[in-house]
Simulated scan of single mutants.
Amino acid sequence: MADGCMRLSGAGYRKRALEQDEGHATRTLELFYTETIAALVAIEEDPHEKAITRNEATGIRIQLELLETAFMQGLWSFLLTSFNAVSKKLQNVNTTISEVISLFNGLVKVVSDTREEFDQYEEKALSISTIQEYKTLRQRRRNQNLQPGENRDNSIQLSGRDNFRVNTFNVILDRTLTELTRRREAYQKIYSKFSLITDMKHLSNEELREKSIILSQYYTQDLKENLGNEMVFFKAYCTEKKILNYSPLELLKMLRQDNLQISYPNLEIALRMFLSIPISNCSAERSFSVLKRVKNYLRSSLSENKLNALALLTIESDLFLSIDCEDIIREFAAEKSRRKEL
């Protein structure tokens, strides 16, 4: 065991691992794939190790030696490296929605191109995998009652390679591409509402007024109908001062510095709304925070269904508080009533 562990704990390993600023597990596994398998073999053959430890090492080694595992670690290493770079940019407070859309366009292009690179990933996996063939699915043939004129020759039997490509490789990339496209469209929808601000220099006065009406109708409680006139006047002001290339943040700072928010109150509100829209979300983290508040020591014996229901009511508290519960309570009381008329 000592020799195998030394391969993974020596100075060379630490240096190479630290040089990879991404730091995720798939990248580390890609760098030390053969060393990891050698270390597992050393653990298996070490008589001083517990039997359960040797068995676990054997199971992990068998999985790592599969061609499919070597293929997937190379694929995920590439994808997670790309996602990690975008994630770091999304966490920057100065990142704008237009930049986010460009980042998502890049990810969509990367995933689309990766779908056509199966052979490259396969070649790389074959170079490090112990097993050089894909697992072939062996299925028991079902007895079918064939109608006159039918035969079993129409059934398609995929090879191990084709089955892995169709049912694993393509499925992962297609689902990832669908989710990325959905999120990009959500950002594009928000961006289009505020295009009168981001694309002000490219829009005519009539287009500015039309887009201002759409935005003010969407935020009726915040913006007035004269937003269009303010945009036309402000564009003329920016043209005169030659600041049409300013970003929304720079425009808001300029409004405050020149004390123009009194002249353009609706524009100032629209700028603040646009700049305060978060470019990322943390719905999963909020769910865990809610569970921590709901399932305290007084509710430690809650069933899963009840816990899920309480968590959903807490997460969607705004919607829940807007619902009139009197009818629901009366309905519930009527159903649970045990009084019987004599």
Rank of each mutant, 00 (worst) to 15 (best):
L208S: 01
V108K: 05
E122T: 10
Q73W: 07
A17T: 13
L251F: 06
F194P: 04
N151L: 00
Y297F: 12
R209D: 08
N296I: 02
L215G: 00
L252M: 14
L64K: 13
F104T: 04
Q144S: 05
L312R: 02
R14D: 13
I156C: 00
R141N: 04
E304T: 08
E65S: 09
C282V: 06
L313I: 14
E123S: 11
I37A: 14
M6N: 12
G4M: 04
A57I: 13
N296P: 00
A42H: 11
I97A: 08
C325H: 15
N170E: 13
L312D: 02
L173Q: 01
R184K: 15
L255G: 04
R330V: 11
A270D: 06
Q139N: 13
T176Q: 10
T181L: 03
T34S: 09
S159I: 05
R272W: 00
D3V: 12
R256I: 14
L79F: 07
F83Q: 03
I315L: 15
T130E: 08
L275G: 01
N55V: 01
R152F: 00
S127T: 07
E250I: 06
L249I: 09
Q20S: 15
T96V: 06
L275R: 03
E225G: 12
S102C: 01
D318P: 03
I156E: 08
F83D: 04
R256P: 00
T53K: 12
I172D: 02
E210W: 00
Y264R: 05
S263R: 05
T314A: 08
R141D: 04
I197P: 01
S195D: 09
T69F: 13
R7W: 10
G228I: 02
H48R: 14
T96C: 00
A17Y: 08
V166M: 09
D258K: 15
N266Y: 01
S301H: 08
K124L: 13
L103P: 04
T168M: 07
